[in-house]
Amino acid sequence: MNTPGPSPVFEQPESFEFTPENRKLAEAHIAKYPPGRQASAVLPLLHLAQVQSGGWLPKAAMDYVAQMLGMAPIRVYEVGTFYTMFNLRPVGRYLLQVCTTTPCWLRGSDDVVAACERKLGIAMGETTADGLFTLVEVECLGACVNAPVLQVNNDFYEDLNGPATEKLLDALRAGNPPPPGSVIGRQASAPITGRTTLTGLPAKPAADRSRRNRKRT
């Protein structure tokens, strides 16, 4: 995503300005830092700008943030290009981030990738012609227990495989995204085979911990 320098294939907006609500939020962020240290607010402000711009960070937005914080534009470009979660070119309405790090890969993230590519007709890093989907590969999203995982905008879809991914994409295309979380219906990160513990209420209150432990072994 982060090839330095604006790419010529898309248009950068001429100007950018925070909406009044975002401006208020930005000022609240700036107020968290001591006077003269307002540059510390650069990350939250860039994030606000990205959300407002529809998921990506135009150059004009970085210039605007630089001006707002009294920073040299290049210092903001450095931050904006450093973090992979800032998108420097337009993304589709659904930004699909497939995790392909070891646990997800072991659990079949290749199938998820293949399903996305086949279903959407795009390769990694590309956006569909209708502007609905952008597909990117990311490193560990921290949901290894429910691998493989696909992040759609801010939501995780877990325990995917090829067909489930295609179903998810269909639902997204139809405009009714399913509830986030495990697609096989498990609760949070509970065992995939169903509960293995706390399956029923205890018979009676355990008065003596050591005795109960002895009984279980």
């Binding site: 982060n2 210092r75 450095e78 290009t81």
Partner: peptide
């Protein structure tokens, strides 16, 4: 003159003015 910076990270780090 704050015009030069390092954009990107890791292997993608570059010394640049960003907008040339």
């Amino acid at each position: 003159v704050q015009e030069l910076g390092a954009t990107g990270r890791g292997e993608n780090m570059e010394i640049t003015t960003y907008i040339e």
